[in-house]
Design a protein around this nucleic acid. Structure first.
Length: 266
DNA sequence: CCCATTTGACCAGA
DNA sequence: TCTGGTCAAATGGG
């Protein structure tokens, strides 16, 4: 089943990225155990035992996996609804991975808190990373935007949903596409660097993202490297290679809300 | 017609 | 008892 991987290894990825931006909240501290199967209605219990980790990102939907939304709910403390997703391969491959996405603020690029539960056992995930366009609005490049387009689409899973598979994006009304802004000024407390790599602490066996790999060469089978779109179109990785990291501190989105204790009821 | 999303209800845990 | 997580029927889009 899952892999009882050591926790330390899980964090390697995060730490390599600069800082641990994932706050683990394993209520029980138990990982990869007790496959919650049994009766369909039973899968709902044992919330405590489920491994979960939290990440903060501006791109909660681009994490290299296919998710299927199964619920949405307004949360008491939050002004924004919470969206519930589970792995698209849940039935196909018994993948228990799920995540819940919750917007945290109204910043220009709103920040999302993504809570992942269970790791992907589907081993699939061809990482249908969308195209990324990096534009530098001003020579100062104080803040630049990454635009995600779904044009690249995937190609790994043509099982049943080859017709749709458009990235389900509850985008804000004014958002033609997702946008990442790297801004080292606008965030007094923490300049968060967004990055579409909120991966679970999965074994590094086939970790598509790694600190080194990211900044050096795309270890991926070039998910959406279709540069035939135009001159100004680069893949995520290309953009990164082109000195983006000069202005951005990857993985610096260490958020840690309860740095002094509150929020975060997990 | 098929499949993902929506949405309200149900249920478990705190 | 309240809040949050999941289910499942209904709905809409492709």
């Amino acid at each position: 089943m899952a892999s009882p991987r050591p926790k330390g290894e899980s964090f390697d990825f995060e730490e390599a990225m600069g800082s641990a931006s994932a706050s683990y909240s394993s209520a029980g501290g138990v990982f990869g155990l007790s496959p919650p199967e049994s009766s369909p209605r039973d899968s709902r219990k044992r919330r405590k035992d489920r491994p979960s980790w939290v990440k903060h990102t501006f791109t909660p939907h681009f994490d290299g996996h296919l998710w299927r939304k199964y619920g949405q709910k307004n949360i008491k403390d939050s002004a924004f609804p919470r969206l519930y997703y589970r792995c698209s391969y849940r039935e196909d491959k018994q993948c228990l991975a799920s995540k819940l996405v919750q917007q945290e603020n109204n910043d220009d690029p709103p920040l999302f808190r993504v809570t992942y539960t269970y790791e992907h056992t589907c081993n699939a995930a061809p990482v249908p990373t969308p195209d990324v366009v990096a534009e530098l609005p001003a020579p100062t490049a104080d803040s630049l935007f990454l635009r995600f387009d779904s044009t690249g689409a995937s190609n790994g899973d043509r099982h049943r949903m080859e017709q749709q598979r458009q990235y389900q994006q509850p985008m804000a009304p004014g958002w033609p596409s997702l946008m990442l802004s790297f801004d080292s000024n606008s965030q007094p407390h923490t300049h968060h660097a967004a990055f579409p790599s909120e991966l679970p602490p999965v074994a590094s066996t086939s970790t598509p993202f790694s600190a080194d790999g990211l900044l050096q060469a795309p270890p991926l089978p070039s998910p959406a490297m279709t540069t035939d779109r135009g001159g100004d179109r680069f893949s995520t990785w290309d953009s990164l290679k082109y000195g983006l990291n000069d202005h951005v501190h990857f993985g610096d989105n260490r958020y840690l809300p309860d740095n002094n204790g509150n929020d975060d009821n997990y």
